[in-house]
C-alpha cells in the first residue's frame, strides 16, 4: 500500500512524527557541533529521548522505556563522569573539533553517505505504508520470545556484560603498590 504526499501530510500521526524527529535531528547536529562539551552530551539526551518517543509511537513501549533507563539513566552519567575525570575544558569556546580542513571533507562524506542511503531506500520502498499495530507490544510477549527463540543470544549477552565489567575494572583501576614478598 502506497501513500501520496497529500495523504501523508493530512495524517495527524505524521505531524507527531515531525514534532519528534526534527528536534531529534537538531539535537544530533548539536552533539557533533557544540562548542561546550557538557552541552554536546546533554544534546545527546534529547536525541535519545526522541528515539525513545519514536519507539513508543511505533508500539515498542518496552524498548522505548529501556532506552530511557539504560541510555538516559546510565550511559549519559558515564559520559559526564568521563568528561569530569579527564578534566575536559568546560569553557564556552573550547577547542573540541578538528580544523576546517578536516571538517569539510568529513561533512561532504556524511552528505554523500546520506544521499546514497536515501536513494537506495526510496528506490526500494517508495511510499510503502507502515501498518501500525492496534495495540502496543506487551512486555510479556517480548519476554516470552526472548526466553524461547533468543535464549542462547541472551546467555551470550550476559557473558559479554561480565567480560566488559571485568575488562573495565582491569583497565581503569590504579595499579596497587607492589606487595612485598612473604
Amino acid at each position: 500500500m502506497t501513500i501520496t504526499f497529500s495523504d501523508w501530510i493530512t495524517e495527524i500521526a505524521n505531524w507527531v512524527f515531525l514534532a519528534i524527529a526534527l528536534p531529534t535531528l537538531g539535537a544530533a547536529i548539536l552533539v557533533v557541533s557544540a562548542k561546550n562539551i557538557v552541552r554536546a552530551v546533554l544534546a545527546l539526551v534529547v536525541t535519545l529521548a526522541g528515539t525513545a518517543a519514536l519507539f513508543m509511537m511505533l508500539g515498542a513501549e518496552f524498548v522505548g522505556w529501556t532506552v530511557v533507563l539504560v541510555y538516559i539513566g546510565a550511559v549519559i552519567i558515564l559520559f559526564l563522569i568521563g568528561i569530569m575525570i579527564t578534566r575536559a575544558p568546560l569553557t564556552k569556546n573550547a577547542d573540541l573539533s578538528q580544523p576546517m580542513s578536516m571538517r569539510a571533507p568529513a561533512a561532504l562524506l556524511s552528505i554523500i553517505l546520506f544521499a546514497v542511503i536515501g536513494w537506495a531506500v526510496v528506490a526500494s520502498f517508495g511510499a510503502a505504508a507502515i501498518p501500525l499495530p492496534d495495540e502496543a507490544t506487551t512486555t510479556a510477549s517480548i519476554g516470552e520470545t526472548m526466553f524461547t527463540n533468543w535464549v542462547i543470544p541472551f546467555e551470550v549477552m550476559s557473558f559479554v556484560l561480565l567480560a566488559a565489567l571485568v575488562g573495565g575494572i582491569a583497565l581503569a583501576r590504579q595499579d596497587a603498590p607492589e606487595e612485598e614478598e612473604a
Partner: peptide, 14 residues
C-alpha cells in the same frame, strides 16, 4: 540514515 551520517561526521571531526 540522517542520524547515522551525523554520527559519522562527529566520529571524523571530534
Amino acid at each position: 540514515a540522517a542520524l547515522f551520517s551525523i554520527g559519522l561526521y562527529g566520529v571524523l571531526t571530534r
